[in-house]
């Protein structure tokens, strides 16, 4: 396994913390063929030193579609040694029309020692002014996810599939979200991974004959990839919330008393979500994704009528998921409405 020090080389040129701005200015002044573009501050926070290389690549991928100032923060708190911060600058450039480079800058920080509370100051001091702050918090929500930090975040990304204690972290997230100081919109990659699955499932119910079957549904079966049970449960919660159901054990109970049994199982493939089927005794509505395919097949099977449709599948990488979400900002997210039901499903799932 490569050491942290050897991974640091991907971060570009190391500069003294107090001279980050000067280094950035020199970076842009060095080559007139480059255009700097920035529509937002995009920060990635992590505490896992092995993620440095991957996160630099993620920022490079995101900047292909969304010009930003990238901030990569690796926090290694250790109360036994005094805090120390190192900084690097680099740029991610894309060729435009084969001639000019359009570049986004990346500033990386390694925060070692101390209690880790220097995160706030490090972020605050290096934001591109007047631009929104998009913050991707990787891993568990630790004590460093505090009000002073999240009060400056406009858009927060988390990935609940990486949480060691989903019930606890969902609680922290909801608690933060309802604070007066919090003004962030939150997006969970586990939720984004089901975006096109949900769209495809919704398309199955576009005609009146299919809608009439809604009140006869009695089971939902979801197949997910290893490590993505939360994404599957979020999908089940979405079905429940949309049908105004309540959770009772591992079932959804609709207002009319109709019971839908939830069956969530792990599949053999690697895709986070592989299949979902809503069924009654006489009809089924399903979305299937073949391994490796960029499309899903949405199918409707009713006694006198059946059809299939090919629709886009959810995007394969975290960077693509985030880039796609940033392209459709302004859309009201249903995610926060799902979390309370998800917590009930997690409790029943335990």
């Amino acid at each position: 396994m490569p050491s942290l020090e050897s991974n640091l080389s991907v971060l570009g040129q190391e500069v003294p913390l107090g001279k980050v701005d000067k280094a950035l200015k020199e970076l842009w002044g060095a080559d007139e063929a480059r255009d700097k573009a920035s529509l937002m501050n995009f920060a990635i926070y992590c505490e896992n030193p092995e993620s440095l290389v991957n996160n630099t690549q993620l920022l490079a991928d995101i900047t292909k579609e969304h010009a930003c100032r990238g901030l990569l923060i690796l926090n290694q708190p250790n109360g036994e040694t005094p805090p120390k911060t190192r900084a690097w600058v680099t740029a991610h450039c894309q060729l435009l029309d084969g001639r000019k480079s359009v570049c986004s800058e990346q500033v990386s920080f390694l925060l070692e020692g101390g209690t880790g509370n220097q995160v706030r100051n490090t972020v605050f001091a290096h934001l591109d002014s007047d631009l929104p702050l998009v913050f991707w918090w990787q891993g568990d929500l630790t004590v460093n996810f505090d009000e002073r930090l999240y009060s400056v975040i406009d858009l927060l990304f988390v990935d609940s599939s990486s949480w060691s204690d989903p019930k606890g972290d969902f609680g922290k997230l909801l608690n933060a979200h309802c604070q007066d100081a919090a003004r962030f919109h939150v997006y969970d990659l586990s939720w984004l991974r089901s975006h096109y699955f949900r769209t495809a499932l919704a398309s199955c119910f576009n005609d009146p004959l299919a809608l009439a079957e809604l009140h006869k549904l009695n089971r939902i079966q979801i197949t997910h990839g290893p490590g993505h049970r939360v994404a599957a449960l979020l999908l089940a919660a979405w079905v429940g919330v949309r049908l105004k159901a309540t959770v009772k054990g591992s079932t959804l109970v609709l207002p009319e008393g109709q019971v839908i049994k939830i069956d969530v199982k792990e599949g053999k493939d690697t895709e986070p979500l592989q299949a979902v089927e809503l069924a009654s005794d006489t009809a089924s509505f399903g979305v299937d994704r073949a391994c490796g395919s960029s499309y899903v097949c949405a199918s409707v099977n009713m006694p006198d009528h059946s059809h299939e449709q090919i629709l886009p599948a959810d995007l394969p990488t975290d960077a693509a998921l985030i880039a796609n979400l940033l392209s459709r900002l302004g859309r009201k997210s249903l995610y926060v409405q799902m979390v309370p039901m998800l917590q009930e499903l997690l409790a029943a799932d335990a």
């Binding site: 975006h195 949900r198 119910f205 809608l211 949309r242 459709r328």
Partner: peptide
Amino acid sequence: MSDIENPFQETLISR
């Protein structure tokens, strides 16, 4: 029958 709305369609509001 056609008055019933698709309850799953809400995620598509922006397009």
